[in-house]
C-alpha cells in the first residue's frame, strides 16, 4: 500500500527507500548518470578550471508565490556556480525529510526541482534521502551542490572591482524576502508580491557572450544588495557609490517594506545578479541582461569610486549622502 506520509522506513535504505528513489526521484531527474544508482556519479568534464559550490535550503513556508523550496534549491546552487563565471553542469541533491511529511508535498517539491533543473539545463547526477523523527527537522531541508566549468578567459571575483566600474543590477530588489515574510503566519497581507526565484546561468552566458571584460558577478541573496555590495567593496578595497533614485523596487514591495520597517537594500533576492564592468562596456552588458527573461528591469545603480575605499555610500534621492552599511543580523520589524 502506498503511504500518503513519509515514514522513517523511507529513509531506511531498504525496500521503501528504493521504491521512493525508483518511483519518484529517478523519473523527476531522468538521466543516465543517476540511473546507474552507483554510490556516486561518474562524470566527464572538459579540462581546465572547475567551480564548485553548495548551499542548504530550509525556507519556511516551503511553497510560496513564485516558487518553492524545490526550485529554490536548484536555482540557488545553479546561480552560485554561475556567479563564479562558470557554466553549471551537474548537481547533487540531499534531502532531510521530517517523518510524517505529506507524500503529495514531496512529489510536488521533487517535480519542481526536476522542472527547475531542466530549465537551467543542469543534470542532477547524485543524491541522498534521509528521514528523521518528527520534530527533528522542520518538514524538509534540501542541500544541493553543483559543479561547472570556467572558460579560460573568465576571471570574475568580488576582489576585482576597479574605480570607474559601473554597477548593474539585473532587476527589482527584495521580491523574494518580502514574499516569504508576508507568507509567514500572522501577516495577513493581501498583495501580489512573488518570489523572483530564477536560474541566472543563461543570463550569465549572455553577459560573457558580449565579449566584455566582466570584473565582478554576484547574486545578492541573503543580506540583499546592500550587504553584497559591502562584501565587494571590502574585497576590492574600493568605494561603491549607489544612487537611491535608481534602485529598482516594485511599488508593492516598497510599500510592505515601509510598513514593516524593512530596508529593501537588505532583503533577499533569489533571481538577481550584480555585474561590475568597466564603464565603457556597461551599455552592452546591460543590453544583454535586459534581453534575458529575468533581466527586463535591469539598470545601472552606481559606480566604483576611489573615495571611501572599502565602503558603500549612497547619493540619496534628495541629493544628500550617507553610508550604506552591511546588515548585522536578521532585520526585525519595528514597533512604530
Amino acid at each position: 500500500m502506498k503511504s500518503d506520509k513519509i515514514l522513517l522506513d523511507h529513509g531506511s535504505g531498504g525496500k521503501m527507500s528504493h521504491r521512493l528513489t525508483a518511483n519518484l526521484l529517478l523519473p523527476a531527474f531522468d538521466n543516465p548518470a543517476l540511473a546507474m544508482l552507483d554510490d556516486g556519479a561518474t562524470l566527464h568534464l572538459p579540462g581546465g578550471r572547475i567551480a564548485f559550490s553548495t548551499d542548504t535550503y530550509v525556507v519556511d513556508p516551503i511553497f510560496f508565490p513564485g516558487g518553492s523550496i524545490g526550485d529554490l534549491a536548484i536555482n540557488g546552487t545553479v546561480n552560485d556556480v554561475a556567479m563564479c563565471g562558470a557554466t553549471p553542469l551537474y548537481l547533487s541533491v540531499g534531502m532531510i525529510i521530517e517523518e510524517g511529511f505529506p507524500m503529495a508535498d514531496l512529489e510536488r517539491v521533487v517535480a519542481q526541482m526536476g522542472r527547475a533543473a531542466r530549465l537551467a539545463g543542469v543534470t542532477v547526477v547524485t543524491g541522498d534521502t534521509k528521514v528523521v523523527p518528527k520534530g527533528a527537522a522542520d518538514k524538509i531541508f534540501i542541500n544541493t551542490a553543483g559543479i561547472g566549468t570556467i572558460d579560460e578567459n573568465v576571471n570574475v571575483s568580488g576582489a576585482n572591482a576597479r574605480p570607474g566600474d559601473t554597477v548593474i543590477l539585473s532587476g527589482t530588489m527584495a521580491d523574494h524576502g518580502m514574499t516569504i515574510l508576508t507568507q509567514r503566519e500572522g501577516l495577513a497581507f493581501d498583495s501580489d508580491v512573488k518570489s523572483d526565484s530564477a536560474p541566472l546561468n543563461h543570463m550569465v552566458a549572455d553577459i560573457f557572450g558580449t565579449g566584455c571584460d566582466i570584473h565582478v558577478l554576484r547574486d545578492p541573496t541573503r543580506g540583499g544588495v546592500g550587504t553584497t555590495l559591502n562584501e565587494i567593496a571590502d574585497q576590492s578595497k574600493a568605494g561603491i557609490r549607489i544612487d537611491e533614485d535608481r534602485l529598482p523596487v516594485r511599488p508593492a514591495v516598497s510599500g510592505i517594506c515601509e510598513l514593516l520597517g524593512f530596508d529593501p537594500l537588505y532583503v533577499a533576492n533569489e533571481g538577481k545578479l550584480l555585474a561590475l564592468v568597466p564603464a565603457d562596456q556597461a551599455g552592452r552588458v546591460l543590453a544583454a541582461i535586459q534581453q534575458s527573461p529575468y533581466g527586463k528591469d535591469a539598470c545601472i545603480i552606481g559606480e566604483v569610486t576611489d573615495d571611501h575605499p572599502g565602503r558603500v555610500f549612497m547619493r540619496t534621492r534628495i541629493g544628500g549622502e550617507r553610508i550604506v552599511d552591511m546588515l548585522t543580523g536578521e532585520q526585525l520589524p519595528r514597533i512604530c
Binding site: P251, A252, S254, G255, R317, I318
Partner: peptide
C-alpha cells in the same frame, strides 16, 4: 491599502529648495 510611496515628498526639487 495604499502601497505607493508619496513621491512628492521625496521630490529632489522641493527638498533642495527647502535645504537652500
Amino acid at each position: 491599502m495604499a502601497l505607493k510611496q508619496n513621491d512628492a515628498f521625496h521630490d529632489p526639487q522641493i527638498a533642495r529648495h527647502l535645504a537652500e
